[in-house]
Amino acid sequence: MKDSAAGIASSMASMRELEIFSASDARFSSLGAPVKILASFVFILCVVSFGVYDLGVMLFFVFPAALWFVVKPPARIFFNRLLIVLPFVVFTGISNLIFDNSVVELPFGFQTRGGAVSFFTILCKAVLCVGAALFLVLTTPINAIAGGLRRFKLPCVLVLQTVLTLRYLEVMLDEARRMHCAYSLRAPNLSGIRISDWHKIVARLFLRSLDRAENIYSAMLCRGFCARKTMDFYKTKESFAEIAALLCFVFACVFLRAAGWIFKGAAW
């Protein structure tokens, strides 16, 4: 439980880091969340639309490169997220290396094994898609994302649950830390928590978190919190400039997607 709690704590610290970064970022904060969410989706759609032998997907690295230069996020955040995605992506890529024995003819007359090309393209797609999601949260605070999701008519109760889950995760972590501390002080000879005590600790943790969550929710209600109203506060209407910027971005993505066709590999 100690390692798990440490893992959860580091993830929450990483989340807090993201929230602080997004709140402090001035360059993209003026862009509304719906525009940024749509732009991320368009980007991801274009990236995944490339076939397994389409090396044209590499052209899309121009976007994250430009954004990285402007936003300057901590590299550690990006690599931590990539590590989460990599196992399954690498597993799929390696299976292609093993099972795909086709020969792919690339532009300019190069030939290579299809498995190698598809492994490479899957990796490129993974990096680009993780990057797109990361840039979205680096430049958009959680409340703005909530407003953006409401703008897309996601049900209020779902958006509320998204925000509350994040808040209550901190509460749960706080309670877990306290319980672990109290347990360790009464079991100085043990290095962790006994397996036979796990279910009691976990269930009690759940109940204590629930009690605190109910108090927190009561406090929110007493300060006039109304899910629909509060979620809708963060909804923004898009300005003409934002729509124009989005259209330019979409056009750029479509253009690059079309241009990527020239790098398409042909398998035989």
Binding site: R16, A23, R212, N215, A219, M220, C222
Partner: peptide
């Protein structure tokens, strides 16, 4: 309403 436990009321960044 000021709650007994201030942590219940302070939940923002």
């Amino acid at each position: 309403f000021v709650f007994q436990n201030s942590d219940d009321q302070l939940f923002s960044l």
